[in-house]
Simulated assay, not measured.
Amino acid sequence: MHPIIRNILAVILGWFIGGAVNMGIVMLGHKVMLIPGIDPNDMEGLANALHTLGGEYFIFPFLAHAVGTLVGAIVAAGIAATHKMKFALAIGVLFLIGGIAACFMIPAPAWFIVLDLVVAYIPMAWLGGKIGARICSK
């Protein structure tokens, strides 16, 4: 396969698979950590309740963002023909953009926003790039 096609495919599949992992963990979190009286599909109700929730309710969203980015970056680095770390970090940037957008759509506590934006995206993409490159070199 031509390297350019393979690199484009790496970003598309990394983004898609990472997003699927993210959504799966979010959905699992809604089943494990039920928010009393809130429908998890009602974004307005969820946004209104977030400021009343304890830190334990933010574990699954953080894990979803971090693990989704990590898996997406591993996939991208694993598939990319060249510049594996750059493509893994591109996944991190795409997820970071989504995380920033989510900050405006779902008003979470400031501590969570800072933790999420600083730890869940670029560092996980870097780690995923290292893992994905190592897996492919064997």
Results as ranks from 00 to 15, higher is better:
L115V: 13
A73S: 08
W126N: 03
H51M: 15
A88I: 00
E56V: 15
I79Q: 02
I122T: 02
M105P: 12
A49S: 13
I122F: 06
L89V: 07
I113L: 07
F58A: 07
A125Y: 00
K84V: 09
P61C: 07
L117N: 05
I106W: 12
A47L: 08
A102R: 09
W111C: 08
R134M: 08
I91V: 11
Y57C: 11
I106F: 13
F60I: 13
F62D: 08
G68S: 06
T82E: 14
V118W: 04
I122K: 01
L50R: 08
H65L: 10
K130C: 15
W126E: 05
G78K: 08
P123Y: 05
A80V: 04
R134A: 14
A125W: 01
K84W: 07
G54Q: 08
G99R: 02
A77R: 00
A49T: 07
I100H: 04
F112N: 04
I59A: 13
M124G: 00
W111F: 11
G54F: 12
P107D: 08
V114L: 13
A76Q: 01
F58G: 09
A110Y: 14
G45P: 08
A108E: 12
F112A: 09
E44P: 12
K84R: 12
E44R: 13
F112W: 11
C103T: 14
L63E: 13
H83N: 15
G132I: 02
T69I: 00
H65W: 11
W111K: 07
V75A: 03
A108W: 11
L115Y: 10
L89C: 10
P61G: 05
G99A: 06
L117D: 05
A90N: 04
G128A: 06
H65Y: 14
N48R: 15
T52A: 11
A49Q: 09
M85D: 11
A77L: 03
A47F: 10
A88C: 06
F58Y: 12
D116E: 09
L115Q: 09
L70D: 03
G98E: 04
M105S: 14
I74Y: 00
L96I: 07
F87Y: 11
I97Y: 12
G98K: 03
P61A: 06
V67E: 10
A90M: 13
G55K: 14
L127C: 12
A133T: 05
P61S: 07
E44C: 12
V119Q: 09
A125H: 03
I59F: 13
F58D: 04
K130F: 15
L96D: 03
Y121T: 00
G55Q: 15
L115K: 09
F112H: 12
I59S: 12
A102Y: 10
A102I: 13
A125L: 02
E56Y: 15
T82Y: 14
A76V: 04
W111G: 07
A120G: 04
M105D: 13
L127R: 02
E56W: 15
M105R: 11
A133K: 06
A49D: 04
V119C: 12
A80L: 06
L96F: 07
